[in-house]
Design a protein around this nucleic acid. Structure first.
Lengths: 333, 333
DNA sequence: AACATCCGCGAAACCGCTTTCACGGCTCTA
DNA sequence: TAGAGCCGTGAAAGCGGTTTCGCGGATGTT
């Protein structure tokens, strides 16, 4: 910055008031006489004044920065899911005069760069994605930092979170397969360390339970959300259960992996084996056959997270938010 | 923040030195006697001191914040491409002690929130993605803000940028199709308002030129990077040119759209018509047939952008970076 | 031995805004 | 009409670092 910008002192002189008054006017304190307020506004306008947010942050203790912490390595942003959530968050925050600071890094220990940054009071709040451990979150909570978790936390009941209705989605997907007449329905779960994967498995099991059955041995496989893992488990499933007639995969990518293997193995989808995914991502629409899947409103998820943060900053009590999911029937089941 | 953290004054007392010395030690000024520096470090360690970055920013004029500006609406982050670039940027910046401030918003005018924010000196630099207009960039440039553009700028020759070798990639893709014996090769370009789309078209044309031919009328169509647009143009192409034997699409999504239409129209890919995409995104790998495409190292793109920013902050002269692209041969061509 | 240099260090000003505090002038009550 | 209570306002003290400036002593030069 070579061109120095005006400060309060300049504005104050131009408007013939004190700096304190300038501050009051610019922060919406209505105890200032309208006439003087008007003079201040005019001076601001005329001189093209922009408040220095850093100085403001130092003096007030509010930075207007919210951290979005993605507790994972970089590859995670290649999944459009988190990119989309992030944009939702970012938009809501921006509308409320807050900026989004993005931190993509395995949080792991409580002493890494991210932890350090969050604890050093440079942000007014933090929104976590893909939380692998509650340790840091609990520490921050204790420090009084407003927090929101996207996805269901493991063991921190008192931290506000937003999540999709994983259980309901998985239930609907599995129910749909049963309704199509499938007898032997398998599930490929996600990384079972995540609560979402667990909830989806629960939804799946619930359908079996209501039908008075239990899934045969080997029909429950633990994947890791990757294309390869879908392929691999489809192979194992088909080998162990030649009469398999449906697979519910915990995300679209694994569903695609499964379909790829099944087709290579000479099975027709959906005629021989039906497949349902989860997420309704782009690949679900471009796949052949187009993938039947569970749609989550990902932008809404981000917006909900942002709104939960705003509410907390305003001192409101907040409740966890569970967003509905929806079965999207396409060609694969 | 209820728990108040120690300040320089506390550290200074504990180490029995002045605040100035504490500052010097913590900023790596090696003119301090090792013995006293050691005392400072011990005090810092013992008291768990963390520097307040806001105060530091105010005093030094450096915020350690770099804006990543995506000049588009939210939907853009649903394209994993930008998410991936962002992670590359973020990692490099973080390694250099900088934080990433994400701003997803159509920049458009020079007076919106983003413009305001950038001009108010709260970031040490800005990296732009998907620039639709050079107006704001030129203003910021004039203010002396370090800038990096990801993608080739329209008309700002003096602003450092990073880009993939679009021309070379398109050239390789088209050349490959010719080498496979194709006679009638069409192109579906991206939004021709973007420099990348233009460069890809140029690469395509260059191959024709070298072969001493010109593409027949109607073989060049302008798409918009969407799946639908790929479908639509494939339809038009096939209608106008029943003997078409290859399509080069400017991104994978349009390539997939084209393949989808061709297959529905009873054409076999690659036997009847070969298709090449661009990006090597996830769908290229999951597609059936797997898509032959041009791979760009997207993470490297982000890292290059980050490094260009770091270099500028260090006062180094920087040159634009063009990253190589690579033909990935799969099943579709 | 006398004088110019250099070096490590602390005092203090400063970055630009926020917020407390107290003061002068007014209105209100008894 | 004197005392209490309000209100709009400015002076000034921070917020927590960074950086300039100059001092005292050690070193180097004739």
């Amino acid at each position: 910055m070579n061109t120095s910008r005006p400060t309060y002192s300049v504005i104050a002189k131009a408007a013939n008031v004190s700096e304190a008054t300038v501050s009051r006017v610019l922060n919406g304190d209505d105890s200032v006489h309208p006439e003087r307020a008007k003079r201040v506004h005019e001076a601001v306008e005329k001189l093209g004044y922009k408040k220095n947010r850093v100085a403001s942050a130092l003096a007030s203790g509010r930075t207007n920065l919210i951290a979005v912490v993605i507790d994972d390595d970089l590859s995670i942003l290649q999944d459009p899911f988190w990119g989309t959530v992030t944009s939702g968050v970012s938009r809501v925050l921006m509308e409320n005069g807050l900026q989004t600071v993005l931190m993509v890094s395995p949080v792991g220990s409580n002493e890494g760069g991210v932890a350090h940054y969050l604890k050093s009071g440079e942000v007014d709040g933090a929104i976590f994605f893909v939380l692998h451990s509650d340790a840091l979150v609990n520490i921050l909570k204790r420090q009084g930092l407003p927090l929101v978790i996207t996805g269901t936390p493991h063991s921190s009941p008192d931290i506000p979170f937003v999540d999709a209705d994983n259980f309901g989605g998985a239930y609907a997907a599995t129910k749909h397969l049963f309704a199509q007449g499938c007898k032997k329905v398998a599930i490929i779960t996600g990384d079972i360390g995540t609560t979402a994967a667990k909830q989806r498995l629960d939804g799946f099991l619930q359908v079996y339970r209501e039908a008075g059955k239990v899934p045969a041995k080997g029909l429950i496989c633990e994947g890791d959300y990757s294309f390869e893992s879908g392929k691999e488990h489809a192979k194992k499933l088909l080998a162990a259960h030649p009469d398999l007639d449906a697979i519910f995969a915990s995300n679209d990518l694994m569903a695609m992996g499964a379909i790829t293997y099944l087709q290579d193995a000479g099975k027709r989808v959906p005629e021989d084996i039906k497949v349902v995914g989860f997420d309704d991502s782009l690949i679900a629409q471009t796949a052949r056959p187009a993938l039947t899947t569970i749609k989550q409103d990902v932008v809404a998820l981000g917006e909900a997270a942002g709104n939960l943060m705003i509410a907390q900053l305003n001192g409101q009590e907040v409740e966890p938010v569970i967003l509905p999911t929806e079965l999207v029937i396409r060609a694969s089941a």
